[in-house]
Design a protein around this nucleic acid. Structure first.
Lengths: 183, 183, 183, 183
DNA sequence: CCATAAACGAGACGGTACGTCATGTCTTACA
DNA sequence: TGTAAGACATGACGTACCGTCTCGTTTATGG
């Protein structure tokens, strides 16, 4: 027997409800119960396909990022490419996506499986993307690229978390400017 | 009239219990109920002086840092001072203190009052300390110190959260080395 | 859609636990927490169906009385019927049921909703039953039946509360004897 | 050494506060903490002289009754004396005193010491008083006076508790009328 | 005329029940 | 078999009151 197939409508409703609730109540305010209610779905339907609210939001975030993060075009100017890449990244990080990813990171501190998923799905690919942009030649060849990635994305995370400064186009310019001064 | 004075024993027992539970169960596993139980105190006694577990742990962390973070001595060698400062910082961040501060940062995302306390008590002073070390002359005079602080502490936070690499003496050396190449 | 139906097992376990606890600890010693624990049920399950311990015990008492209070048979001898009715009533009042109904009455002093429920469920029907027995002709026709009911059940309540004398078959006989002397 | 003598002002303030709170919040709403606060006294001062709120209210009630319950005058007309006695009793029972004594009776169900105090201080003397009035000759000499007291005061208690009818002068008349018909 | 000592106000203490909320599992009827 | 609905056992939440304790202060008496 095959049984009733999974409802794509329910899946989309759940992911969208999770995003909406996160925008309205913040990451911490989202609950599995709330997601199911807002999606007009049963509680069990959520639990059948995801184990935690973090997994729901991770999948929702992945879909959002797939839509909104096209590969950075190679303009021939390495520094301009870097600025473009960072501006695009920072813009996304300022919105609801930023709140989600920060919340996911917080939950990941006590959920190793989520931590692994988060690295594999979001963090890792973004690190690779930044690295490939950096490899186009903004830095002297003997500079440690992994360290540079840590410094650049680290500044972004730090500001996202601590909110002592904006994560915007200006930051992108300043970072590119500072990297350009490394000899 | 004055009433019975606050019990310093209870205060210390609660802070210590919070630290112990955090070490055993992780930040997320700590509960107000658990703290009171482990401290052998009543629930109301905890709530009388702190509103949330985050506030308890923030005070506990503050006391730990006050003990373990002496001012960085001025050796005359700016880069050596920077390395010493970062090593000291990173060492503390690797232990339970790191878990706590990461958890606090996560909670602060949905608790503005905690966020303000955290900036005022922990983050701000550390930023000021790093900035004063950087001012000793590791960088060209026209480099934006705030941006540099964001990059350096950002890298630390990023690694603490994402755990893709260690936060250790080696990182301190590498960062100092990279900063020294800025012209 | 229908949802999971209410668990009759849980309902019975809760009512039985309430009775058991009342027998063991007395009415005042019963707590909602204790009922849930003793019933092996969750706290929320109790609160879902009853608001207070008084409501739980009222329902439990109602079920006990439904089992143990058959209608008084009409033997043709009004005074014998009255004695039989009172003996049956007093016997039940001597046991745990008496403790419960006294406790309910006490709580009803500060809970008007409970007071109404108690009158509608227990007190009112018993008054009506006594009245119908009295109407069989133990009293002269112009005697106020409501007042007589107050006197008879009043004596029972008074002794139940104050415990200065037993509420037993002897009392039933004495009351019937005194009523028979009214001209 | 003698130490500071007990403060009569505090004693009176506590008793009065207990009465006021009982009038405002009902018997159940009274708390030891609330009494102390309302009396402007310390918690320990209340506990030093009384163990429970019931004991406080019993003493307060005793003082009220001593003021308001003069001995029933012997007019020569036994039935008129009975009516006068019952009217006086019922009038007092209608007010705050009624609420208090009902609450005390409720608490006494789970506090044997209070039950004994209540019988000795309030219930017993009132029973004796009613009995002495009845002995003036409203009843045939072979009627059981204790039973009659139970019926009369029972009716009062029953109405005070269940509130299905007033406890007033009319009731006094009706009871006296019914007792007069006993042959 | 202080010294003693008990009562006083204030309020923190350890404890426990309260009623609410979210968790993750389960049991229905329906699709 | 997937789904919406919702009851279930569990356990933390923050609040209220309990009865005890420990302060500083007040008020009597007795050496």
């Amino acid at each position: 027997m095959t049984g009733r197939p999974r409802s794509e409508a329910a899946r989309k409703a759940i992911l969208q409800a999770a995003l909406d609730l996160c925008a309205r109540d913040g990451y911490q305010g989202v609950t599995m119960k709330g997601i199911a209610q807002a999606a007009g779905s049963g509680r069990q339907t959520v639990y059948r396909w995801w184990q935690t609210k973090a997994q729901v939001l991770l999948e929702a975030l992945t879909e959002v990022m797939a839509e909104r993060m096209p590969p950075t075009p190679d303009s021939g100017d390495p520094r301009a490419d870097l600025v473009a890449f960072l501006e695009q990244t920072f813009t996304l990080a300022q919105g609801v996506s930023g709140h989600i990813v920060v919340g996911l990171m917080a939950d990941a501190q006590s959920d190793p499986e989520l931590a692994a998923d988060l690295r594999a799905t979001i963090i890792g690919p973004r690190r690779a993307a930044l690295r490939s942009v950096l490899e186009r030649g903004v830095l002297p060849p003997d500079v440690d690229l992994e360290l540079t990635v840590d410094l650049v994305f680290g500044a972004m995370w730090y500001r996202l978390l601590n909110r002592h400064a904006e994560v915007n186009a200006e930051l992108a310019e300043e970072i590119a400017g500072l990297l350009a001064r490394i000899r």
